[in-house]
């Protein structure tokens, strides 16, 4: 017994990180890996909720074949708009977030009040907030059209096929930009002063300061934010689910909504939905891997 305990202590000395990491690793194994394996297994069958175990048959890769052969109508379109939404949405959130952070970083009174306002969208429950947006976007009785009509005399059909994508984008940007803003503002606060002072002595203008000092110093933080936002944008669900339910037509049927439509609610084709989920997971992994590479490179460089 004593011998074993010595051995154990030696091992611990060699790998001191183990007791720190173990609890997290166990929890994540249970909550992440297990469902992941499960989803993959289901994606190989024609499983539906309510079908007896005997009626489930193993289909091999046929669910995947359906997806990639274009037999599943609108699948490629879903992938396309999901990626497009991610790129566009992340870009807008990062740019707007940076602008707001720079504004916040100015000297002015009542800064606390402004930050409090920014916390509101973060704190609002997404499922309720999107319902309110739906009410505001209503083309006949919405407050947004009420304002637009008062100014221009025209109205916009916010939830029609042409504008639904834009509406989802607006609500998403509203809800998640403040998080980016606060992170970037915090970053700006902690920047060292000395490089700025010497650059000002050299006669640099504001844009040059931003371009050559602020951006490089914040690069990692920006990339981390962008990475987190891109992943969340690809998985986007709550807001389009409430606002448009994927419609009209397929205008806002993002991959996550397509999964939900196929696997839950009225349709209940869990096997097919799982195959799509696996595709989504692979897609998100590839994109996050790529961004992570960029991050690591910039860390080393």
């Amino acid at each position: 017994m004593g011998k074993l305990s010595v051995q154990f202590q030696n091992r611990l000395r060699k790998h001191p990180q183990v007791p720190y990491i173990l609890p997290t690793a166990i929890v994540m194994l249970l909550l992440f890996i297990l469902p992941l394996v499960f989803v993959f297994l289901i994606s190989l069958t024609n499983y539906r909720l309510g079908v007896g175990l005997d009626d489930i048959s193993f289909l091999g890769l046929s669910n995947y074949k359906r997806l990639f052969s274009g037999e599943e109508s609108g699948f490629y379109y879903s992938v396309f708009i999901s990626v497009f939404f991610m790129v566009l949405g992340t870009l807008i959130q990062m740019i707007l977030g940076m602008i707001c952070a720079l504004l916040l970083n100015q000297r002015f009174r009542r800064k606390g009040l402004v930050i409090a306002c920014l916390i509101v969208p973060i704190a609002m429950t997404p499922s309720i907030a999107s319902q309110i947006w739906k009410l505001m976007f209503n083309s006949e009785f919405g407050v947004i059209n009420y304002f637009i009509e008062a100014v221009t005399g025209q109205t916009v059909q916010w939830l029609s096929a042409d504008y639904a994508f834009l509406s989802v984008l607006i609500a998403t940007v509203w809800q998640y930009t403040p998080f980016v803003t606060l992170m970037l503002y915090a970053g700006l606060c902690s920047l060292p002063q000395s490089p700025y002072e010497s650059a000002i002595l050299d006669g640099a203008n504001k844009w040059q300061l931003f371009r050559h000092i602020t951006l490089p110093l914040l690069k990692n933080l920006i990339l981390l934010c962008a990475l987190m936002r891109s992943i969340d944008m690809l998985k986007t669900f709550d807001i389009p689910y409430v606002l448009t339910q994927g419609g009209p037509g397929n205008a806002t049927r993002f991959l996550s909504l397509k999964i939900y439509d196929t696997g839950f609610g009225e349709q209940n084709f869990v096997g097919r939905a799982s195959a799509m989920a696996v595709v989504l997971i692979v897609l998100v992994s590839l994109i996050s891997l790529a961004l992570f590479r960029v991050m690591n490179k910039s860390k080393e460089g």
Partner: peptide
């Protein structure tokens, strides 16, 4: 119908009628 018809659920449809539209 309204140009929004393709995105109207039962509630939107009812509201349109109930509001005299």
């Amino acid at each position: 119908s309204s140009p929004d018809i393709a995105s109207m659920n039962h509630e939107d449809a009812a509201a349109l009628f109930a509001q005299g539209k």
